[in-house]
Amino acid sequence: MNKKSLACSGLALAALAALAALVAFAAVPALAHHSFAMFDRDKPMTLEGVVKQFQWTNPHSWIQVNAPGPDGVMREWSIEGNSTGTLYRQGWKPTSFKAGDKVSMRIFPMKDGSAGGSFVGAKFADGHVLGRMD
């Protein structure tokens, strides 16, 4: 790689980082359709699992993930996301998650301990992130 392309890569990386920051900021869930009261925003948690299904739908998108919960028991988790229009404008696509994707999922879990939560972020095996993982 010559010096020029290195510089370009640096610029591209910077642009990507800026974009990622923008997307991360914009991805704070608004949950346009119902109350947020069921979720515990004070105790975000991270699931390590495998995507079973991605529902690119309204009023919410849903990511179904098979992952062990805090008790170690494997369950199918229902992770609720924003509506499709907003997600698309934030850089998501109908193919952002595919069945079989290994992901770390950051969520605001349901207060009652059910296998569900509100989407905060996802980190894929190749390192790319949607939303935010902090």
Binding site: H33, H34, T57, N58, P59, W62, S78, S83, T84, G85
Partner: peptide, 13 residues
């Protein structure tokens, strides 16, 4: 662009 928002499409709440 703006897209469809169909509340009844997949209302799981």
């Amino acid at each position: 662009r703006v897209f469809d928002y169909v509340c009844t499409e997949n209302n799981r709440n």
